[in-house]
């Protein structure tokens, strides 16, 4: 449920670090809480995101949640497929349901994130 190669934030985003870039999505727990995702509002390529600030919104039929950036940096890639098939976030949160790729400006921020085990414990407390 929580792949061990990822890092997790308290707001339920995950990060996959690859060199100086980080792919960002939301966890399986988060997608399950939201219910069927019907819309994802993401930044554009070239935008700057700041760790702890919002970078977009995700909607189910009757809820809106903000997406918080786990790390700071420039957005280098956006998952445009989510515009037409937002339900991919439910179906494959760690794969095709990714949201943005960021060029990390401060690698130390990654160290502040939780590993899979810590996140699982965190989630079981929240549930």
């Amino acid at each position: 449920m929580y792949p061990s190669d990822l890092k997790y934030a308290r707001e339920h985003e995950w990060v996959r670090v690859d060199g100086d870039t980080a792919t960002i999505g939301i966890s399986d727990f988060a997608q399950d809480q939201l219910g069927e995702v019907v819309y994802v509002d993401l930044p554009s390529e070239g935008d700057e995101v700041t760790a702890g600030d919002t970078f977009g919104e995700i909607e189910s039929v009757k809820s809106v949640s903000e997406l918080y950036a786990p790390v700071s940096g420039e957005v280098v890639k956006v998952n445009e497929a989510l515009e037409d098939t937002p339900e991919t976030v439910n179906e494959d949160p760690y794969g095709d349901g990714w949201m943005i790729v960021v060029r990390i400006s401060d690698p130390s921020q990654v160290d502040d994130l939780m590993d899979a085990g810590a996140y699982e414990a965190f989630v079981s407390e929240e549930a």
Binding site: Y39, E59, V61, K62, S63, V64
Partner: peptide
Amino acid sequence: MQTREQHIR
């Protein structure tokens, strides 16, 4: 499109 509205947002 109710997420635009006051009872949700």
